[in-house]
Simulated scan of single mutants.
Amino acid sequence: MHSFIPPKRFFPYLSWTDIQAMPNKEDVVIIQPVGSIEQHGLHLPLIVDAAIGMAVLGKALEKLDTSIPAYALPILYYGKSNEHWHFPGTMTLSAETLIATLMEVGESVYRAGFRKLVLMNSHGGQPQVMEIVARDLHIKYDEFLVFPLFTWRVPHITSELVTLKEKQVGIHAGDAETSLMLAILPEQVKMDAAVAEYPPEQPEGSLLSIEGKLPFAWATRDLSKSGVVGDPTVATKEKGDRILESVSDGWVRVIKDVYAFQKPQPE
C-alpha cells in the first residue's frame, strides 16, 4: 500500500494511539502528495505525474535523517486536468472539488495536532490550486503552516541533461518525464511509440508564452496532436536515474527547511 514510500514514513501505517502519543507534533512534517491521472502521449501511461511524485518523495524520505519526523499521506491521484480531457482516459476534478478535498484533508491534519503540512504537487496544471488552499488554511488556522510546493521547483540538474528547446518548452511527456519513468516504471513505457512534438511558436518578439510570467490559457489539443509537448525520443534510464537522485536531494533539503521553519514574527 505504501508504494515507493518507506513503510516507517507512511502515515496510514500509524495507529491513532501512535499519533496521540507523538511528541512535538507542531514540528512534525506531514506531506500530502498530489498527482493526476491524465494522458501523457502515446508512449506513457496516465499515472506519470502521480508516479513521479511518489518516487521522488519516497527516495527523499529514504535519504532523510531519521531524527527528522516526516510522514507521507496517501497520494491524491486525481487532480485538475481538464486541459487534457480531450484525450480519452484523462480523469479530472474541478478546481472547486480539489480545493474542497485538500481543505478537508488539511483540517483533518490540523485536528490531529499537526501544524506543518506540505502540499507536494506534481501536475503542472494545478499549482494555483495548492496556493489557494495553503493560504486559506493558514488564514483559517493562524498557527497552521502550509507549504504549496511543486515537485520540480527544488534545485536539481535536469536542465543540464536536456536541450535548450526542451528546457524552454518541453513541458509534457518529454525527455525529463520519460527518462524518469524509464527509471521508476520501465515496464510501463513504450519507447517504440514515442514521438517528438513541440507547440506552434509565438510570433517573434511576443511577450506571451504557454508558461511563464505572461501566459495564455490553452488546452493540450491547442499545442499537440499526440498529447506530447517535448521530445521523449531521446530519453534514457541513465538520465532518469540522475534526475531522480537530484530532485530527491532537493526534496531532502526542503523537508529539512520545513521542519526548521517557524512562523515569521514581525518586530
Rank of each mutant, 00 (worst) to 15 (best):
S206Q: 14
R115M: 07
V254Q: 08
G125R: 14
V105R: 00
W218Y: 15
E26V: 02
D241H: 03
T163Q: 07
E160F: 08
A193T: 09
G124P: 08
A50Y: 10
V133A: 04
K167I: 03
F261S: 05
Y259P: 08
Y110Q: 08
D241E: 15
P6R: 09
Y259S: 09
G212M: 03
S3A: 11
I99F: 13
K116A: 07
A72G: 02
E245I: 05
F114V: 02
S248T: 04
V162I: 15
I52Y: 00
S226E: 08
A260C: 00
N82D: 15
I243V: 12
P74K: 06
I157L: 14
A235R: 00
F114C: 02
L208N: 13
G205E: 12
H86L: 11
Q168Y: 02
E267S: 11
M130K: 07
T233Q: 07
I47Y: 13
E107A: 13
P215W: 03
M1K: 14
D241P: 03
I132Y: 12
P264I: 06
V146D: 01
L42N: 14
H2Y: 13
I99T: 09
P200F: 07
P6W: 11
D175L: 00
P12L: 06
M54R: 10
K263I: 03
R111Y: 10
I37C: 08
D142L: 10
K239M: 15
L42M: 10
G124Y: 13
A217W: 15
N121P: 02
K140N: 12
L61C: 08
L73C: 00
Q126A: 05
E245C: 06
S248G: 04
E166V: 04
E201I: 04
K116S: 02
I132R: 13
L46H: 07
V133S: 01
G240T: 01
S224K: 06
V133Q: 03
H2K: 10
T158I: 13
E197Y: 11
K256I: 04
S36H: 02
Q168G: 01
I37N: 06
M120W: 05
E62F: 01
S81F: 02
P127T: 04
I243A: 06
M22F: 12
I157D: 13
Q128T: 10
G79A: 07
E211P: 00
S67V: 03
S3P: 00
V34M: 05
P148M: 04
K256C: 04
S248L: 06
H123Q: 12
L214T: 13
E83W: 05
I5T: 10
V162Q: 08
P203R: 06
M130C: 07
L14T: 03
H156S: 13
I30S: 06
S3Q: 14
T17L: 13
E26L: 04
K167Q: 15
H40Q: 07
Q32V: 06
V254D: 00
V189F: 03
G79H: 06
S108I: 03
G89S: 12
Q39A: 08
P12N: 09
H86N: 10
F147D: 08
S94L: 06
Y78N: 08
A112H: 14
A72S: 15
I157G: 05
A51G: 03
I19C: 00
D231F: 04
R9D: 03
K140H: 10
A70W: 00
E131S: 11
P148A: 03
I139H: 12
E177N: 10
T178Y: 09
S246V: 07
V146H: 02
L214C: 11
A194F: 14
P69K: 01
H86S: 14
Y259H: 14
I132K: 15
H123R: 12
D27H: 14
